[in-house]
């Protein structure tokens, strides 16, 4: 009964993955004519002046900041929705809407919304007398713009999971805390966070993993405008780098080596998170 899934995974995921690892030791104009070059692609990639470090930095910046912001927002929203409020169902649906959207359309729309002159983000900031930054070309704000879009599209999904986690926390813990004289913040800190930690853990792992694999947003948000390296260097994540090398510049060996590097990073991060889990995750 597991055959259809396992065989499929074997053929369309496992074999390609190992094939790709093999390609990372080769070099050639395409994936039909190539020669084995040993570790050369890895040596080039890991040299100090290689582009990959910049890409790694961008990827980490995006993954960690986006995940942190998205988690804070979704914890707050989940708590707010867990309070006894009207129209909870409606809010829930609205917050989830961005997760329903096609990535191709998301980038297309946000590229316009972030425009410094006619985009609504800066017009909104203008209401408070803030002169919005030039999101699409100012190196200090470019990735932040992508992060905003990332939070916009992921917070709702995380919130739904956290909300369910909150519902599972028995009321008696809060009552006990109140008897001990705890205020709202105290209750949040000493009851909500520890008891929510397994769910938070799950959300963190999946979000960080998705953050490291982020591609669509960069492809649609940046790809159409700032394609010269002068701007692209602030956007280019590892997966975008892999795509560019593999599909646009026909450097399949280098692209494969970078994929292997990324895969190793994701594996290490996951392991670290599982180790850390013991430190802060409390199971009931």
């Amino acid at each position: 009964m597991i055959a259809p899934v396992v065989i499929g995974v074997l053929i369309f995921f496992m074999i390609p993955t190992f094939w790709s690892i093999y390609l990372s030791f080769t070099d050639g104009p395409d994936y039909v004519t190539y020669e084995l070059v040993g570790l050369q692609n890895y040596i080039d990639m890991l040299s100090p002046d290689s582009e990959v470090w910049r890409e790694l930095l961008n990827t980490c910046y995006y993954a960690f900041v986006q995940v942190a912001l998205s988690l804070v927002v979704s914890v707050l929203l989940a708590n707010a929705l867990n309070a006894n409020i009207r129209c909870r169902g409606l809010f829930r649906v609205i917050y989830f809407l961005p997760s329903v959207t096609m990535a191709a359309a998301v980038g297309m729309v946000w590229r316009q919304l972030l425009n410094s002159q006619y985009g609504i983000v800066n017009q909104f900031l203008g209401l408070f007398g803030i002169k919005g930054p030039v999101w699409l070309t100012d190196p200090n704000f470019m990735m932040l713009g992508v992060i905003i879009v990332g939070v916009w599209s992921s917070a709702g999904y995380n919130m739904i999971i956290l909300l369910a986690g909150l519902k599972n926390i028995s009321k008696s813990y809060y009552e006990a805390a109140e008897i001990d004289g705890a205020g709202s913040f105290q209750k949040f800190k000493s009851v909500t966070v520890p008891l929510l930690s397994p769910v938070l853990f799950f959300v963190t792992i999946t979000s960080v993993m998705n953050g490291f694999k982020m591609f669509d947003l960069i492809y649609t948000l940046a790809g159409s405008g700032a394609t010269v390296d002068k701007f692209m260097q602030y956007y280019r994540t590892m997966v975008y780098g892999i795509y560019e090398k593999g599909f646009l510049y026909h450097r399949l060996g280098a692209a494969s080596a970078e994929s292997v590097f990324l895969l190793v990073i994701i594996l290490i991060l996951t392991l670290i998170q599982f180790k850390l889990q013991d430190k802060w995750v409390h199971y009931e």
Binding site: P16, L23, M209, F212
Partner: peptide, 20 residues
């Protein structure tokens, strides 16, 4: 083994997959 597959970026496997 199946779960680790979730960590592999699609861009990595797309060309071998295409060949298959």
């Amino acid at each position: 083994a199946c779960m680790t597959v979730l960590m592999v970026p699609t861009q990595m496997i797309i060309i071998p997959r295409f060949l298959i």
